[in-house]
Design a protein around this nucleic acid. Sequence first.
DNA 1: TTTGCCTCTGACATCCATGTGAGGTTTTAG
DNA 2: CTAAAACCTCACATGGATGTCAGAGGCAAA
Lengths: 125, 125
Amino acid sequence: MRIGELATRTGVSVRSLRYYEEQGLLSSTRAASGQRHYTDHEVERVAFIQRLYAAGLSSRTIAEVLPCAESPSEENSDAALERMTQERDRLSAHIDDLVRTRDALDGLVAANRAHRATLVAASGQ
Amino acid sequence: MRIGELATRTGVSVRSLRYYEEQGLLSSTRAASGQRHYTDHEVERVAFIQRLYAAGLSSRTIAEVLPCAESPSEENSDAALERMTQERDRLSAHIDDLVRTRDALDGLVAANRAHRATLVAASGQ
DNA sequence: TTTGCCTCTGACATCCATGTGAGGTTTTAG
DNA sequence: CTAAAACCTCACATGGATGTCAGAGGCAAA
């Protein structure tokens, strides 16, 4: 498929797909005319890239980790594996932090609802 | 305390503290000379602002939600409460997404370790 | 008082993923 | 064949939080 289709199928802009390639996150075969062609496989790959971006990895870090994801067979140096583990731990810590923040928000929402209920009761008197 | 102390106590740069004030997230009393003064209370407040930033809220959204956090008593319009609930849900969805990503990373790490083990066994032969 | 550190405002710089537009070629549909 | 739509590269713009610098004033210890 060409880049436009990949874009619609992944929900990622054409601009971003080109950027991913520029950053070494995504590869394409080129037609004689210069147009990029992709296989279905790339759809998954783009989805995973998006997940990693959402997890707060920079394109640089993603580039470091992705080869490891594609083929566990290659010479994915210890460094890549270690980097992946490290990012995994960072992500885990971040998740914990977010959960605490969510709890805090829940507390605030509850407090406000409670206060609201009080007001209603008072006005009902 | 003055801004420098608040900065060291919260781990947030002086620049950012001024920025928070500019965005209406933080207030200070000013000395006659113009210098900002804060109470211990602001330490907590800055910490909470940081949590919200980390949770992906923009300063605009934080400004919308914070008054609600300070006093559940005020006229924290329905809008603010609704906004808070909405951000809470967004955050929750984001957490779920991150957890899935973490699981994916765990899978990759495991696969690579397994492959490595295979290599070691083979070389051991 | 002088010295050194802190603070003030204002403005410009940075990072990074993405948007946008120009100017040109390729593909596809009518 | 032609027009529309998709694609190419290059390059500049954007946004948001923060860094950084300049020039000026504030404050405390020696």
